[in-house]
Design a protein around this nucleic acid. Structure first.
Lengths: 226, 226
DNA sequence: TTGACGCTAAAACAAATGTTCGCTATACTT
DNA sequence: AAGTATAGCGAACATTTGTTTTAGCGTCAA
């Protein structure tokens, strides 16, 4: 731990307040709220001391962002400050159902449809690409539009949950207007998004960005025979 | 749990974003940030949907407070509030190196470079096909002779240790006379064995049974991107 | 003394951010 | 057809909130 006692009384007070406030409210306090708590009438003084705490490595600040405070070091005396480090040996990610990788199969529902069935699949962490298991989920592929990308019907794809994608990445995209989720290569073009299958037999899907919601990008693939 | 699927796409999206953003940043997103993420141009629409989420019991809002959002219900799939279930032991199978699936490559010693573990690789047991871990081992594929079978360079194949094979099965075969191990489809013909690649560009290997030692048959395949 | 430095103030400023208010559109109900 | 509820948009508005500026005070060393 850092040299907590090196800090002034005020700064210690501020740290404690930041920690407890954030825990209770779910969001960090504003500069003025901190000032009121600690007994500082001037925002600049609070600001000054916050920067001091940044220097000391206790917090991080997001510039020009309301309540952009983040505690990054444990402070003595507060129990729940530390994040849980000990993780279970086997990461388990939710297996949320099927995804169309061909003629858009109208799925029963959104991904979220299946998501609450706790259908979890254990994965070795080397397949998570260093990500936390909570960021990752799995889908079973239906259809053969991605065979040129070495993905066939029945494969399980592991995805990282994210809403954006880089060109060329393989993503699961939700098309609200069509009510379908599909697995394609992602390409952002001028005014539209191209979802490119990896199979000569299929045409790319061209949609407006507003009708394309990225659900995640493919991290790995997994297939069992028989 | 609440009826997550009852929510509109947007609302689900917002919830997920709130959860992930808060977790990543340490503080909740602003209305405009949510709007940008979800693709809403008007703050009032975000506001509207936030209030809807409040009604649905998913979040709480602090009036007139920047980023005054608080998630009060679990959202399926991603929550960090995951309950720990029983964790099975991780089967670990030996990762014994590279296998040629193309022009027989004389194995260099750069065995398992991208596998961080020593020689073992953790696997979920659903990829073991119900077998004991001691029966199973893993190989990294080199070459592209099996691309028509959806296996490409760099893939890791999981095999069951066995000395025989049925026609059509994908096996790892040791060719004593050539000092090579190769990954091919297995076919027993009259007086010889045909090791058939799954790539038009490659010729089958025809060998006498005495010069063909089956090491194992492929159970599953595993691939990571990037 | 003078000057550098740590700390505190107060006020003004600028940006971020929540709130409100018309207005439109669609679907469903009466 | 009129009415109502849901959903959405855009713009103006009002606060909140972070940033900056200027200044006062005390300590310590040169």
């Amino acid at each position: 731990m850092k040299d907590f006692k090196r800090l002034s009384q005020r700064q210690q007070h501020m740290l404690r307040f930041l920690q407890s406030y954030t825990q209770e409210q779910g969001y960090p306090p504003s500069i003025r709220e901190i000032g009121e708590e600690v007994g500082i009438g001037s925002t600049s003084v609070v600001n000054y001391n916050l920067n001091r705490l940044v220097d000391a490595g206790y917090i991080e600040r997001a510039g020009r962002v309301s309540r952009g405070l983040r505690l990054i070091a444990d402070i003595p005396g507060s129990p729940a400050a530390s994040k849980v480090v000990a993780l279970p040996a086997v990461p388990r990610v939710p297996h949320v159902g099927l995804i169309a990788a061909g003629e858009p199969i109208s799925l029963p529902e959104d991904i979220a449809h299946h998501i609450d069935e706790d259908d979890y699949i254990g994965l070795p962490q080397h397949m998570l690409g260093g990500l936390d298991e909570s960021e990752v989920f799995a889908l079973t592929v239906r259809g053969d539009s991605m065979i040129d990308a070495m993905i066939q019907d029945g494969d399980i794809v592991i995805l990282r949950r994210q809403n954006t994608a880089e060109n060329g990445e393989m993503v699961a995209a939700w098309l609200p207007e069509d009510g379908e989720t599909t697995l394609k290569h992602f390409y952002r073009e001028k005014e539209r998004i191209r979802l490119q299958p990896a199979n000569q037999a299929y045409q790319p899907i061209l949609v407006h960005p507003s009708n394309c919601e990225i659900k995640g990008k493919v991290l790995s693939v997994l297939r069992s025979f028989r």
